[in-house]
Amino acid sequence: MLEGIISLIIVIFISPLFAGMINKYKAIFTGRIGAPVFQPYYELIRLIKKETINASSSSFVSKIAPIIIFLSMIFVSSIIPVGFLKPLISFNGDIILFAYILGLARFLQILSAMDIGSSFEGMGAAREATFALFAEPIFFFSIGSIAFISGHTSMYEIFNSILLNNIGYEIFIIVCSISVFILAITECSRMPVDDPNTHLELTMIHEVMILDNSGFDLFLYQFSSYIKLTIYALIEISFFYPFGKQNHFLGILIFIVGFLTLSITLALVETITSRYKMKLIPQYLLFATSIGILNLLIYTFMK
């Protein structure tokens, strides 16, 4: 219980820092100085103090959606193990709860976008609904396949069961982590699927959905997207914990190294690639899915 609360607090407090790190590295790679690493914290505090403005055609959905999305991210992050700490919510089958709470968040995100009644938000919502469909199988073919192979249905146990003692299994896990990386890029709306920094509405997915939000609503949206990014980073790092031997020092070390590597990788990916055409995104996601399927087949038949 205490471990779970500690890890939840770590996730909540570290998530803006992670986003700040990515931005900093990205700035460095593109030859700028960039904003300080702690900039996202300032931004969040600034947003709280702003006036909340809603569109005139918006309804109760716009009022409750940010809250539910934020809470969904909190609850989802309390399913993922941080280091060797047992998460707050951990029971058999919580992997399904994980996927479906994210689904609930998506449902309300799309609704709140459509609530504005503007075609910009509609465009983003339609894209979100479409690409989510392609992202869904990636989750099941990566994390789900580990669950089906190991026979565990709880996130904590799934990651606990990963033992890097067999070369076949190691390769399987590494390829899974690549699939998860592509999933993370899609879900967290990073390049090359979505550009979090652009201001041309026609090219955005996530950003365009929250275009008409401000103040406390935007604070909740931004914070939840930071947490979401951290959740996927945690999943990615969790693949590489040698869960067999539990050493807290080692855990902290891997945690820090993992976050550093991931932020550099994400920044690097965003520096060297440009955003794909919208038509190409389904192919990109299907590519990740097929990696997952191939990986699974190879692992099964090589055993």
Partner: peptide, 13 residues
């Protein structure tokens, strides 16, 4: 917070 820092509704952008 909405009360403290005010909130209102305007036409969508």
């Amino acid at each position: 917070f909405n009360k403290k820092y005010s909130s209102r509704k305007i036409e969508a952008w």
